[in-house]
Design a protein around this nucleic acid. Structure first.
Lengths: 199, 199
DNA sequence: TACCTTTACTAACACCGTTAGGTAAACTTG
DNA sequence: CAAGTTTACCTAACGGTGTTAGTAAAGGTA
């Protein structure tokens, strides 16, 4: 009785097809111009078919942002295995975060609400805290012999995350408005080093 | 011959009326739901009238974002006069930046492209660099006896700006996704102090 | 008064997200 | 195999968006 399974598989295929087509459209034309009708066109089905697989456009964006978080998590996981020294690990996490953002700007923008509404605000807690947890683990590893208070560690984690996210956001959204060509990855590397030195 | 002047005055009034009505609509309902038709409704004129005063919707958003930058600049200017000590001044700038963001979230979101496309990218250099220049002046005042290189000073400026912008962005966009109630102004205050100590 | 410029309007175009309703094919059951 | 049911898919519409062409009226000028 493989009939039901084939149907489920077909339904699954349609779903992933919609998502991959949507992502491609976004990569080509940006979030602004993504529309249900364009997705329908690209998958060569009529518009209402999409609503058989997703509740609405927001649900598609939400699913794509989850993909983004998962993709980021995979690289951070690799760092965790590759770098036993917490300082090296923290450097690697920062590097991965930065390069994830600029290799996948569509994902980063969707995940952090740059240039478009965040999707799934409030429903996405574990994924959203993923990066914070990875750098938190590394920072705790670095400062553990310094007997810092939990509060101190906590704000160091947020400070680290924030400086990365802030740099990325400014460069990504307003790069052409900054009259300073040194606003690039070197700024981040230097900032990360200064941060580590003062942990 | 006050006729021409009255007309210019009336045209000016209409323009500012459109802008203030648009800002009010945004404060009430958010950027997402702002539309030309709602503006037309609120000023009690038909839609095309708006296009006599602004090229398109983007131009209205651009003008509003300029208002935002000007409002921020005024508070920073006050700090410059009030605090002769550069360290106090830097603290005050950070405080002003944070409180500007959360007292005027609509402006901040528009200025930095949070949750909606930035308007006027590339046309807004001087205004956009305003905050960087204010904190740059203060930081240079603090580190001047330490004979830091220009590069070092420059990346400290961006690091300071980034950590503020990053914190604000995360709290503003994803506050409900952070499972940590300590993510608040105290984090910023502590981070600012740590930053100043290590300048 | 005749003319011209400005002001404002209605109505349309081409999109958008979303959904109601219908048809024809595919499958299930007797 | 025939009848009934479920599924897949479509067309067409609703109400919304930004934008603009064309037009009528009002105001000022000669």
């Amino acid at each position: 009785m493989g009939i039901l399974e084939r149907r489920i598989r077909q339904k699954e295929n349609m779903r992933t097809n919609i998502l991959s087509v949507a992502l491609q459209l976004v990569k080509d034309e940006g979030w602004q111009s993504l529309s249900i009708r364009k997705i329908a066109d690209a998958i060569e089905y009529s518009v209402p078919v999409i609503y058989d697989h997703f509740e609405n456009k927001e649900a598609i964006l939400f699913e794509l942002s989850l993909d983004g978080f998962r993709l980021l998590e995979r690289t951070l996981e690799k760092n965790k295995k590759k770098y036993p020294d917490p300082t090296d690990r923290l450097r690697a996490h920062a590097e991965s975060y930065w390069s994830f953002a600029f290799k996948n700007p569509e994902y980063y923008q969707l995940m952090y609400g740059l240039g478009m509404p965040c999707s799934g605000v409030g429903k996405i807690k574990p994924e959203f805290n993923c990066f914070r947890n990875f750098i938190g683990e590394a920072i705790e590893g670095i400062v553990k012999e310094k007997k810092s208070s939990d509060d101190e560690t906590c704000f160091k984690i947020y400070a680290f995350w924030s400086v990365l996210h802030g740099l990325i956001s400014i460069v990504m959204m307003r790069c052409s408005d900054i009259d300073d060509s040194t606003m690039n990855k070197k700024i981040m590397d230097d900032t990360v080093e200064a941060f580590i030195k003062n942990l």
